[in-house]
Design a protein around this nucleic acid. Structure first.
Length: 1007
RNA sequence: GCGGGGGUGGCAGAGCCUGGCCAAAUGCGUAGGACUGAGGCUCCUAUGGUAUAGCACCUGCAAGGGUUCAAAUCCCUUCCCCCGCACCA
């Protein structure tokens, strides 16, 4: 009686899927064009003619199924083709495809295009590594992706590389069943796309959002190159941080002191230098002039700096006019490292002597220079300010020199629990001298305490928490010219692959997108406000990012891509050339028909912004085509949904918002962004070093696309990480086999399960109605969940739970007619498992593709909660009976009697449920004559329910209703128990067990 | 440091917004049983503890405290873990 399992189905799946993909391709199923004429026409633009109306009567439709517009434009982030894709990449694309296919089911005309992003350096770098026959790389290709060495070695030309991998990825996407309109494919190094990016930057420039400046980069002086983490020994990511450099007036110039604690400058008593180090007098250009305003910026005090920004810019501009030279005194070693940042032109030896004086710019005090060997000439500037009250090392150094009397420490920060923090900590820990290891501990303790709890006792910001004052003092010092900000490597030392130490260099001809522009920010926020976000909880991340962004370097010296229009020696950086390309999709397949010379600003202005028609003499000749393009754009834009992995919120997706807001009118702003999490491999992050990368094509060839699709999206809710593991794979395959066994006429003559019964020939048994209620409800829920992309929920309910119910149902009714179930189930699951759905649909004898069959129409009337409630009661009874049978050895049980609780108990139930306390419950019960007459019985029941108030949230049935429900369950229960079931009111029975009956919990007697 | 997300049974992972049949879904694992030539399939049962003609009690959702008739769920404090912080796709 068990349903036959068709074990072969999951084995055959890859082949079956290929067949359906071929049919889709032959029918150009996913090619979508704008209707020829405006205004927009309703209906399917797809060329598929398969949509047939559901013959069943229209049922209630609470708005879920009604699309508001007829078109739907959806794009995922395009791939970067420098290696084949793995199952992790598949998640974003599958999610996008699910949404696209769901929208098709809702009757929308869907455009889902795809292109390749080749901008940037990694492809170039990879081609180089291949040319150099990098064994590690070739090994990864071979071992993980199965690309033979001989083939890989030929990919030394970047274009060849792009071609190879993009073909590979495209093939994989096709195999995944993505419903993409491939005619619109392009590459970001295509000349027409370059024109488009130029146009974009012209628009941004016109709006005043493009500017030139400088910015710090990790740098190797030996190589003369910027250094990324992959260029360092041990792949260390060089972190740059800003340090305040304070200028103490000294001789004919300044002694410069680098500090992380600018607020302590009020407590400086002296300055340390290393008597063994060489010092220089350096002549420098006016460094402030050349620094980009970002230099004075610090993310942790952004709000304040928003306002300071303009002032400082003016100050810098004013200063620039004077073009003074500055003289700095610092350690020779430091001067070399900072030469570029400080614009040092030349440097000569300088002798620094003990007790020389330097002027503190904030306190206007002269402080003496003192020797200390702990000062490292290579760190900072090789000169250190001494704050003995707050820095244990300074305190110890003074103590070691026996100068504490002569130079008393100045306490300028008040910290709870400390008097003079450095002294207290040193004494508490018993630190002997500078060389003592415990000095480090003391330092940490003091710094932490002061940073978190300290309050300023001196200077302009007296009374302010150190945390805030620190930033303000730093900003003041720089703005007033008493110091400069310099960049240092936070995690130094880092070695370049060449062996040289990495330092920081300021790149000066750098172009920026001014995401800090308040107007632009406001537009971006407005755009964000107008969008739906999936999941909605990501909104805070976008908001934060929009606030946080300042300048984005948008040019790069090397790499593939579009030459930057205002400096053709550079290219547009890769995140900046992929912000509005969705608009380009609308016309990408038509552009090649135009002469190249016509593709430019005029054309794009007309198509995208409805400015005047191009005057270019070619226009007349190509009018029709250009109008067609404009029509395409206006039909498809705005973008209805943008999909990506969640890690792009902080850059790409926010840039996407900014750029759309800057360039397009409000009616063309994007409407939605959806982001998903990653895919883990057997619980671990996929990585080349772990070697646990599963290429998606390999996975699909083994398990079939739909199994892979299902597993990578069902494992976790949208934004969470999903796990790809064998158990899930096997579970899905087995269930597909089970379903196929039921649906297939080749699986052992069980055709009767899906015989095409006339609508309405329903199983009216309790189990039949229950099952029907369950799946109708699930189809309905899934519709709402698809909209929210709650895919895990959909998979659980629609697939796993439906199948569980189906099994229960078949146990009770082995020859049931399942045709209605499958007619609803198959289209509903089709967005997730499109191939399987087509196959099942076909086997159900349906004509046309399931993907245009429309979202299945559930019947509200079929959804009946009381059936599910009844099932709960029934299951509780079954459990109880089993319990009893297990405990008591009734020999050959023949009959079970169920007694339904009397009406008075229900009265008590209602009273207690409403009153929720003893006094009130009792009062009300004794107002009732019947309950009063029951006396102690009533009291006992009230007490019972008061203890179990949580039970009273169940829906209360009347005795009559409960009796009727049990009657309807009788067949079901009989089948479950395997012996006779009798049902009676407790009042009608003499059985001593009868009076134990409680509402919704009949008492049981087995004999 | 700043920002975000988390800590649930042997494991994975729901539930938390909107407190109440929540000793906590589902899957896996484990144990026993059925079916079978056999099973890595499928099905049934058990899986915090105690008790037991059932529907009961105790302990429990990082730790501690609070609100409430009622807390995994709400509030406060503490501890711990993960991710991002850019010019890089």
């Amino acid at each position: 009686m068990e349903p036959r399992i068709d074990a072969a189905f999951s084995e055959r799946l890859p082949a079956i899927e290929a067949g359906w993909r071929k049919k889709w391709a032959e029918n150009k199923a996913f090619e979508a064009d704008a209707p020829a004429t405006r205004p927009r026409v309703q209906g399917l633009g797809s060329r598929v003619q398969g949509l047939e109306q559901d013959p069943r009567p229209k049922t209630q439709d609470p708005g879920l199924l009604k699309p508001k517009t007829s078109k739907y434009f959806i794009t995922p982030a395009f791939p970067y083709p420098n290696s084949p894709q793995h199952i992790g990449h598949g998640r974003t694309y599958t999610t996008t495809d699910i949404y696209a296919r769901f929208m098709r089911l809702l009757g929308k005309q869907v455009l889902f295009p795809m292109a390749f992003h080749v901008t940037g350096t990694p492809i170039l770098a990879m081609a180089k590594r291949i040319a150099a026959k990098d064994g590690e790389l070739l090994d990864i290709f071979d071992r993980i992706y199965g690309i033979p060495k001989e083939l890989a070695e030929t990919l030394t030309d970047p274009k060849e590389l792009v071609k190879y991998f993009s073909d590979e990825i495209e093939q994989g996407m096709k195999e995944l069943g993505l419903s993409v309109d491939w005619r619109r494919k392009f590459y970001t190094f295509d000349p027409c796309f370059n024109r488009f990016i130029e146009w974009q930057f012209h628009k941004l420039h016109e709006a005043g959002y493009v500017k030139k400046g400088s910015h710090p980069v990790p740098w190797c002086t030996a190589c003369g190159n910027a250094v990324g983490s992959h260029d360092t020994q041990g792949d260390k990511d060089p972190e740059i941080e800003q340090v305040t450099m304070v200028k103490f007036r000294f001789r004919d110039g300044f002694l410069v002191v680098a500090t992380y604690r600018p607020e302590t400058i009020y407590g400086v008593t002296n300055i340390w230098f290393n008597p063994k180090a060489a010092y220089v007098r350096a002549i420098a250009g006016n460094s402030r002039r050349d620094f980009h305003p970002q230099v004075i910026d610090d993310r942790s005090c952004r709000d304040m700096l928003q306002q300071e920004h303009l002032k400082s810019q003016q100050a810098i501009a004013a200063d620039a006019n004077t073009n003074r030279e500055t003289i700095y005194y610092l350690a020779e070693e430091a001067s070399k490292r900072l030469a570029k940042q400080l614009l040092i032109k030349k440097a000569g030896n300088a002798k620094i002597k003990e007790n020389d004086l330097a002027l503190n710019p904030l306190t206007n005090e002269n402080v003496p220079l003192l020797p200390a060997e702990f000062v490292e000439p290579g760190i900072g500037t090789g000169v250190v300010m001494s704050v003995p009250a707050h820095a244990p090392y300074d305190y110890l150094a003074l103590r070691d020199l026996n100068l504490l009397q002569k130079i008393p420490p100045k306490v300028i920060i008040s910290t709870p629990g400390y008097g003079m923090p450095a002294k207290d900590a040193v004494e508490k820990l018993g630190v002997k001298n500078q060389a003592d290891e415990k000095a480090e501990l003391a330092t940490k303790e003091v710094y932490t305490a002061e940073a978190h709890q300290g309050t300023m006792l001196a200077g302009k910001y007296t009374g302010m928490p150190v945390k805030i004052a620190k930033e303000k003092v730093a900003a003041d010092i720089i703005r007033e010219g008493s110091g400069v900000g310099i960049y240092e490597l936070a995690n130094a030392p880092i070695s370049c692959r060449c062996g040289n130490q990495v330092s920081v260099e300021i790149v000066r001809d750098q172009w920026f997108l001014d995401y800090g522009n308040p107007e632009w920010k406001a537009l971006a926020k407005e755009c964000l406000e107008s969008m739906t976000l999936l999941p909605e909880k990501t909104r805070i991340d976008y908001k934060y990012t929009i606030d946080w962004l300042i300048d984005k370097a948008c040019t790069r010296k090397h790499g593939l891509g579009t030459p930057f229009p205002y400096d053709k020696s550079q290219i547009v950086e890769s995140l900046s050339d992929s912000t509005i390309y969705m608009a380009y999709y609308t016309i990408s397949h038509l552009l090649s028909q135009l002469p190249e010379g016509m593709v430019g600003d005029e054309l794009f202005d007309y198509i995208f912004l409805s400015k005047q028609k191009p005057k270019n003499n070619g226009y007349g000749k190509h009018e029709k085509l250009i109008e067609k393009m404009k029509n395409e754009f206006e039909h498809w834009y705005p973008l209805d949904s943008r999909h990506s992995a969640g890690d792009l919120i902080h850059n790409h997706l926010t840039f996407f918002i900014f750029n759309h807001a800057a360039i397009f009118p409000r009616k063309h702003w994007p409407k939605q962004i959806a982001v998903n999490g990653f895919v883990l491999m057997e619980g671990k992050k996929m990585s080349k070093s772990l070697g646990n990368i599963l290429p998606i094509r390999k996975a699909m060839a083994t398990y079939g696309a739909d199994v892979v699709r299902f597993v990578i999206v069902s494992g976790a809710e949208l934004f969470e990480d999903a796990d790809f593991n064998m158990e899930n794979i096997e579970g899905v395959r087995q269930r597909l086999n089970f379903l196929h066994g039921l649906i297939s006429d080749k699986a052992g003559g069980r055709r009767e399960n899906v015989k095409t019964a006339p609508a309405g020939a329903q199983d009216n048994s309790f189990a039949g109605k229950w099952f029907r209620s369950r799946y109708h409800r699930r189809i309905k829920n899934a519709c709402g969940n698809y909209k929210q992309l709650a895919i895990r929920t959909i998979c659980n309910e629609l697939f796993y739970e439906n199948i569980n119910d189906l099994k229960i149902y078949l146990k009770l009714s082995p020859n049931a007619d399942l045709s209605e179930f499958f007619e609803l189930f198959v289209p509903a699951i089709s967005p997730i498992m499109p191939h399987v759905a087509e196959e099942f649909w076909h086997q159900l004898g349906k004509k046309g593709f399931v993907f245009v069959a429309g979202y299945p129409k559930w019947e509200e009337a079929a959804i009946d909660e009381s059936l599910e409630y009844g099932m709960d009661i029934a299951n509780a009874l079954v459990d109880d009976v089993r319990n009893i049978l297990a405990l008591v050895k009734v020999e050959n049980p023949k009959k079970v009697s169920l007694f339904v609780a009397d009406e008075w108990k229900r009265k008590v139930y209602s009273i207690v449920a409403a009153a929720k306390n003893q006094q009130e419950s009792m009062k009300q019960c004794f107002c009732d004559a019947e309950l009063k007459a029951k006396g102690t019985d009533t009291v006992r029941l009230v007490q019972y329910y008061l203890k179990k108030l949580n039970l009273l949230t169940r829906r209360l049935l009347s005795a009559k209703e409960e009796l009727a429900m049990l009657e309807s369950l009788k067949d079901y229960l009989t089948t479950e128990f395997g012996f006779t079931v009798e049902i009676a009111m407790e009042t009608k029975s003499q059985n001593p067990k009868a009076k134990n009956a409680m509402p919704m919990r009949p008492s049981i007697f087995i004999e």
